[in-house]
Design a protein around this nucleic acid. Sequence first.
DNA 1: CTCTTTTTGATAATGACTATCATTATTATG
DNA 2: CATAATAATGATAGTCATTATCAAAAAGAG
Lengths: 138, 138
Amino acid sequence: MIVIIKKRQMLKHTKQKEVILRVLRSTNSHPTALWIYDGVRRELPHVSLATVYRNLRQLAGRGEVLELQFGGPLSHFEGRTDKHNHFICDSCGHIFDVDGPVDGELNDQIAQKTGFKISHYRLVFYGICRECELALRL
Amino acid sequence: MIVIIKKRQMLKHTKQKEVILRVLRSTNSHPTALWIYDGVRRELPHVSLATVYRNLRQLAGRGEVLELQFGGPLSHFEGRTDKHNHFICDSCGHIFDVDGPVDGELNDQIAQKTGFKISHYRLVFYGICRECELALRL
DNA sequence: CTCTTTTTGATAATGACTATCATTATTATG
DNA sequence: CATAATAATGATAGTCATTATCAAAAAGAG
Ligand SMILES: [Mn+2]
Ligand SMILES: [Mn+2]
Ligand SMILES: [Zn+2]
Ligand SMILES: [Zn+2]
């Protein structure tokens, strides 16, 4: 019998990790890895894009940041980690935060109807944001 | 002044398009392009994967099928085009259809709160399906 | 049938992300 | 501090789903 003991890996604090997290937290938008990379480079010009991806993945795995994947080809990240929803403008593509509706309600409603054990949901609204609405009215 | 008149492109009916649509509609699951490709090949052994992707894109653009992108690396397609939501099992990965909740309600609720013109939303639940729930209980 | 336009199949290209690996940085320990 | 153990980094090659390209074939109009 072979027993594999997986030692819990010690995380090491690095300048890169710190700056990546700071850059991401400096905005309330939902930037891509490349945007974060550009921000980090202003402080650490020799940072590698792979390092940005690596750290974002690690941070997301530990729940310190959120990775968001809407339909597009690239991942978006955000520093805000409390539960909230999003609205994406079909015209300008901007991603907005949307609070609530009350969380448990939907889960319970669906759980009852389907018999599934529901842990969470992802809710994204689409439409036209106010700014675009005004611009398109011309 | 240069005027560019874009003629509306005529769509041509092909055997490939027909089979792709039929294969997709033959299941109530949410297959990938590759799964559909395999199905189509049983009838048209020389079909190209590119043709499958091309037609799925065209069909999705015209609303005849739906393209679904959850977090993963590949797109899923489905023939059911009426509004409904999905549940994805964290354990087995299976995608289930989930009907309702009442559609307009959420839109209105959020539209009122945010001032956005909301056209639709995408709602995905996550958790453990009944089959996995039973299996995990052992 | 003939002309025009779209589609096809084969294959190369794209692009976001991940793996690899030698080197460097961080932490633990003496 | 010195040393060893281990994790992280930067550079770059690889992956893989999807898209672009293009000559040849098929579909539809007349
Ligand atoms: Mn957000
Ligand atoms: Mn469905
Ligand atoms: Zn907008
Ligand atoms: Zn399951």
